[in-house]
Amino acid sequence: MRKGVMRPGHVQIRVLDIEEAVKHYVDLIGLIETDRDEQGRVYLKGWTEVDKYSVVLREADEPGMDFMGFKCVDEATIDSLAEDVRKLGIEVKEIPAGDLKDCGRRMQFVAPTGHTFELYATKEQTGKWGVSNVNPEAWPRDLKGMKATRFDHCLLYGDDLEGNLELFETLGFGLAEQVLDPDNNRVALFLTASMKAHDVAFIKHAEKGKFHHASFYLDTWENVLRAADLISMTNTSLDIGPTRHGLTHGQTIYFFDPSGNRNEVFCGGDYYYPDHEPTTWKAEDLGKAIFYHDRQLNERFLSVLT
C-alpha cells in the first residue's frame, strides 16, 4: 500500500576527482549542472526533472554511494514514515534543512543492507530545464551527450534482503520483481513506489553497503544505441550492452564513470500497479534474467562494485 513516497529524489555519489566526474555526468550523460556548495559538492539534474537537482557529486577517497533520497508528498508524511521506520528498530536522524542546498529537512536511516536512505518533502523547484511549463516545446535544443531525461533508480548490493524488504514495504513500496534461489530465498528485490518497474533494487551480496549503479532514463532504443556510440567516441569504460534485461525487460547499456562507479542508461521496461503479484525469476536462470540476449552473466556484474 502506498504511503506517500513519490519518487527517487536524489543520490549522492562519491568520486575521486570532481571535475573529471562533472565532465562525465554533464558532457557525456547530458545532465545539467544546477549549483555547487561551499563543501565543493556539485548538483545536477536531468532536463525533464522539475526539482532543482537529483544527483549530487562529492569528491572523496573512496567512490560509491553516500545516500539515496526519496521525495514524499508532504512534511507530515516524512514524520509519520520516520516513526514507522523507528518501530522496526532502525534509528532515524533528522538532518536540518539547508544541509543539502535548497532542500528541506531529511529523515535519514541505514537500511539492513548497510545503505543510507532518506526521506524529504521539500526541495526548490526550478521546473523542467530549457522548456516552459506553458505550451512546452518537445525538448530543449541545447542538450549534451546522451541527453538523459531523469535520474531513475539505483541498484545496490548488500546482505540482508529480507530486512530491506520489510523496511521498504513499511515505506509503502511494492515488490515488482524478485529472484528466488532453489530454496525460495530471495536473492534480488526490485521495489517500486510508483508505476515504474523499479525505483530501487537490491541484489544479495556478502558485503554491506555496496553500490552497483545509478540509472538514467532515455526515451528510445535508438537513444540507447546512440549512447553506446558516445561511449566509444569518448573512450569511456564500457561494462556491457546495448542489450535487454530479463528483469523489468528494460533496454540498457552499462558503463563506468571516471571513478569506477557504474552508470546505466536505459529505456522501456514493464509497469507495476499495487495489485500486481511479483514477477519471479529463478536464480538458476540469472544469466537470462540480467542479460536477456547473452543469457549469461559477465563476471563483472556480480563482482564490480563501489
Binding site: 575521486l16 577517497d61 560509491g64 571516471p258 571513478s259 569506477g260 562507479n261 563482482s303 563501489t306
Partner: peptide, 28 residues
C-alpha cells in the same frame, strides 16, 4: 578487469620490481 576507474579494486596488484606512477585510487 573491473571498472577501469580506480573504484572497484578488482585489478589490485602488487609491484615487486620497477618504477611507476599512480592516479588516485579508492582507499577502500
Amino acid at each position: 578487469v573491473g571498472c577501469r576507474g580506480g573504484g572497484c579494486g578488482l585489478c589490485k596488484i602488487k609491484v615487486l620490481q620497477g618504477d611507476y606512477q599512480t592516479k588516485r585510487m579508492s582507499r577502500a
